[in-house]
């Protein structure tokens, strides 16, 4: 099984903005890798470097043993990308969009025509094959773009925020498609929807201000997190004395206690005995993300 490896990747743009700062990690090129982070965290810069669009200022990266700088031509034979803000060209139809991309990849006309129709059918948008892209819904337009790269032979696919701006139903439809794709290709996905990464990704990386602050499977991220459980209490509930926990109260008055396993079960027993309504769940990716990002902000403020 191949690997995607980044070694000390740093990117400083010409306006002196540092987008990536010494990013190093390694993941197997199978399944779905989700890269999450806030806007401006450096997700797009990293995906553009890995997909050979952009040169890093320093550091190296390789995919399945092929260096993104010195072996870019060989690497481009096996990768494909749908960039952030990519749009289906408005004067073309979905079939023409997919076909032209396949022609650019060097397929013969007949083969491109056949693969385009198959890809549109697979994504259940073949009924729109000959309608102008401009007349399609946002979700269908996005599926057209996904169809272009999946129709190709590329076995490593980069998707930069593929569901941004879609309604919840279209987003879930795309998730099903991506899950299927991830079975036989490697999908490198960036998103700022934490639920999306939680639902789809086998491995998750968290970027914060150009630095990779955490990486692993969801259970590994939970394990590495200081807190493993989240307890939620209704407004006005009394919070007892806590050990090794973090308490936050929302505007609506709901209280969230993030804590470790032992303390979580002690609190659960206590609340049950007191008849306090509460819910207890393992921490979600949201909890981990907000905890990591929040901690970083606090550390910076203290510094």
């Amino acid at each position: 099984m191949g690997k995607l490896e980044c070694k000390e990747i740093t990117k400083v743009y010409q306006d002196h903005r540092k987008a990536l700062d010494n990013v190093s990690f390694s993941v197997e090129t199978k399944g779905i890798f989700g890269l999450i982070g806030r806007n401006g965290a450096g997700k797009t810069t990293l995906i553009r470097i890995l997909s050979t669009e952009l040169e890093p200022t320093s550091g190296t990266a390789s995919i399945d043993g092929l260096d993104v700088l010195s072996q870019a031509d060989m690497l481009r034979e096996k990768i494909a990308i749908v960039p952030q803000e990519a749009r289906a060209i408005r004067w073309m139809t979905p079939k023409q969009t997919v076909m032209s991309y396949l022609l650019w990849r060097g397929y013969h006309y007949k083969q491109a025509n056949q693969l385009a129709l198959e890809s549109l059918k697979k994504l259940k948008i073949d009924q729109y094959a000959n309608i102008l892209n401009t007349r399609l819904s946002g979700g269908t337009k996005r599926k057209v773009l996904i169809a272009t790269v999946t129709a190709s032979e590329a076995d490593i696919i980069f998707l930069d925020e593929p569901t941004t701006g879609l309604d919840p139903i279209s987003r879930r439809e795309l998730w099903d498609i991506l899950r299927e794709l991830g079975k036989d290709r490697f999908i490198f996905l960036t998103t700022h929807y934490l639920e999306e990464a939680e639902q789809l990704a086998d491995h998750i990386g968290i970027l914060q201000e150009g630095k990779l602050v955490s990486i692993g499977t969801l259970s590994e991220l939970r394990g590495s997190s200081r807190y493993q459980y989240s307890i939620k209490l209704p407004p006005k509930a009394q919070v007892p004395l806590l050990k090794d926990s973090e308490v936050t109260t929302s505007k609506s008055g709901h209280t969230q206690i993030m804590t470790n396993e032992a303390e979580a079960f002690r609190l659960a027993r206590l609340f049950s005995e007191q008849g306090v309504k509460f819910s207890i769940t393992p921490v979600t990716l949201d909890d981990i993300f907000f905890h990591i990002v929040g901690q970083k902000v606090r550390e910076e403020n203290e510094a």
Binding site: R76, A80, P83
Partner: peptide, 17 residues
């Protein structure tokens, strides 16, 4: 237009073209 509005060139750079 194709590069900035549709990101076509980004897709093509990362392809065998």
């Amino acid at each position: 237009h194709l590069k900035n509005d549709f990101k076509l060139q980004d897709m093509i750079v990362s392809s065998p073209t």
